[in-house]
Design a binder for these strands. Sequence first.
DNA 1: TATTGTTATACTCTATAACTATA
DNA 2: TATAGTTATAGAGTATAACAATA
Lengths: 162, 162
Amino acid sequence: MVLEMDHVETILGQWKKQRPDLDCSPMGVIGRVGRARQLMTNKLDDVYKRYELSSIEFDILASLRRLGEAVTPTELYQTLMLSSGAMSTRVDGLVKRGLVERQASEIDRRSCLVTLTTEGLALIDKVVEAHVANEHQMLLALTEEEQAQLAMLLKKWLVANE
Amino acid sequence: MVLEMDHVETILGQWKKQRPDLDCSPMGVIGRVGRARQLMTNKLDDVYKRYELSSIEFDILASLRRLGEAVTPTELYQTLMLSSGAMSTRVDGLVKRGLVERQASEIDRRSCLVTLTTEGLALIDKVVEAHVANEHQMLLALTEEEQAQLAMLLKKWLVANE
DNA sequence: TATTGTTATACTCTATAACTATA
DNA sequence: TATAGTTATAGAGTATAACAATA
């Protein structure tokens, strides 16, 4: 059996030596979630950049696509945890590129609905396919069963903490 | 048995409805790693802020502490994945607060060693204790065995991908 | 010539709050 | 008065590259 170490294992060993009184075992989980996230984010960004999208732009377009309906800027910034001002700026950029449109609301004239244009829909459908293929590729180091187990454990933590 | 949903489960359902042709199962893993990371980061930041440290400042002080020896700015920015300029700025801030010092290197006069001051050492020891206690608290939703399993699965992925 | 580390510059992204229009 | 959304401002953080000193 091969006993390979990862970066967090090294860090745990260093703490063990310098502060043997501390039980740093939770770093084995939390540190690895952080490090995995960082590496995963880099790989996800590779695909976004191929289509000249930032991570947030992808999230906006993907939200509109998977919800299957137009949503207000307020719903968008609350869902994606951005300020209203930041969302306005992001939507502006997508409007300028012809990927989304703002439609006046018929029931509340203060409000508007952000919708995908034909070009935006075609783009996000293409990007999501590349995105999902990329994600499949990223998980090849784990068996289907391990992936399911990992998802299940993270879900249990999230149900208790989100 | 309780079947609670998390946020990612909702998103998976939306994709299933809008794009039933796509196998989005990897989102169950990658999406949850990202979401868990975000929630964990917020909770970790609570402790850092209590001691008026940013996440990066904590990382610098903790690196010095667990390595148990002085390191060069170059080692620091490579380990923490920052640019050299950004590290200079961060170290400056910690020097101004009396938490670290720059010592001239005796073997290479271009270089220096960053060391914890007495105050810096006392501070990081206190913060790390609060940090580890915080991390223990954050994982209470999982049993010891589940935590170990989660760490093991993430480690397997990291060994193959980092 | 190459490398270490600092400094100066410019850029990206953001939150905040002021603001307009409407409810 | 409160809310939806935009705009203007200012701040945090960064990378980049120019720079000085040394290898």
